[in-house]
């Protein structure tokens, strides 16, 4: 079983649209994993149903038992995140500020503080209208995506792929350059970088490729909106050649991206004659390279 991860340094490059179109082409052969948990949008196209839902816990929050608290104030003194405030003669934790470091719990002389596992969101395994399985997650407000959540989404996708005898996992990767994207890349067999023809697109591509290089995973790149800025597009091509990144192709600026999303469809459903050959070719290219 092979794992393909699609990433892009910045948002708005068309990554999820491209991911959905590839899922459409290869629906018989894969399980889809949405690891872009901060902006999980794939479900808007794939229409998940019959979801199997699990709560997801990560990290802890401190909680003060007012009956045990003697208001010594030690916890407030040592908290570096200003997460503890006086409240009705004792103290309480401001959840939004608490980092879950546990320092207050270790120092409380009355054992009045407990560390509660934090429910940060939901984790779902769903059927989709394409027939392939989608593994995805919804995070609560202010909750951080983490390597743990991404790893769980991916490992569940792997289990599913095994039982369903699917040869590929297609993962919509996390943005940025932090822990979630590292977890998205860990275990990947092939990385597809989606970028757009703009100065910020190029600088974000370079940042994210640095990570891919660190993991020594073979990568390929799709340049979206390639005709928006021919100068930058040619800079991107040079960058790809120099860094031995396979150039899968350029996609010109196309209104179909917005039109398709607006209808809750993928590009191919929007205009089959135009997009099916392109994405079939991409998928063929990916399989050949792996």
């Amino acid at each position: 079983m092979k794992e393909i991860v699609i990433i892009s340094g910045k948002g708005g490059t068309g990554k999820s649209s491209i991911c959905a179109a590839l899922a459409y082409v290869a629906k018989e052969e894969l399980v889809v994993a949405d690891c872009d948990v901060d902006a999980a949008d794939l479900h808007l196209i794939l229409n998940p149903k019959n979801s199997e839902v699990q709560d997801f816990y990560s990290g802890v929050l401190a909680e003060i038992d007012p009956d045990k608290c003697i208001a010594c104030g030690l916890c407030q003194q040592i908290c570096r995140f200003a997460a503890i405030e006086p409240h009705e003669k004792t103290y309480r934790v401001i959840d939004l500020e608490c980092e879950g470091c546990g320092y207050c719990y270790y120092v409380c002389p009355q054992d009045a503080i407990t560390l509660i596992d934090q429910n940060v969101g939901k984790f779902l395994i769903s059927d989709t209208r394409y027939g392939c399985t989608l593994v995805h997650a919804h995070l609560g407000i202010g909750a951080d995506n983490s390597g743990k959540l991404v790893a769980k989404v991916k490992s569940e996708a792997k289990t599913r792929a095994k039982t369903e005898q699917k040869a590929y996992i297609l993962a919509d990767g996390s943005p940025g350059i932090g822990c979630p994207v590292i977890a998205s890349l860990a275990g990947a067999d092939y990385v597809i970088l989606v970028t757009e023809s703009s100065k910020s697109g190029l600088s974000d591509l370079k940042r994210v490729q640095e990570l891919v290089t660190k993991f020594q995973i073979p990568s390929a790149c799709i340049v979206n909106k390639a005709d928006i800025n021919p100068g930058v597009t040619s800079d991107i091509h040079k960058y790809l050649a120099k860094n031995k990144i396979h150039h899968m192709g350029d996609i010109p600026y196309a209104e179909d991206f917005h039109k398709a999303i607006a209808m809750g469809r993928c590009l191919i459903e929007e205009n089959e004659t135009r997009w099916l050959p392109i994405f079939s070719e991409y998928w063929h290219d990916i399989k050949e390279k792996i």
Partner: peptide, 8 residues
Amino acid sequence: IMEVAHGA
């Protein structure tokens, strides 16, 4: 290690 959020 599945239970580790960061620093696996």
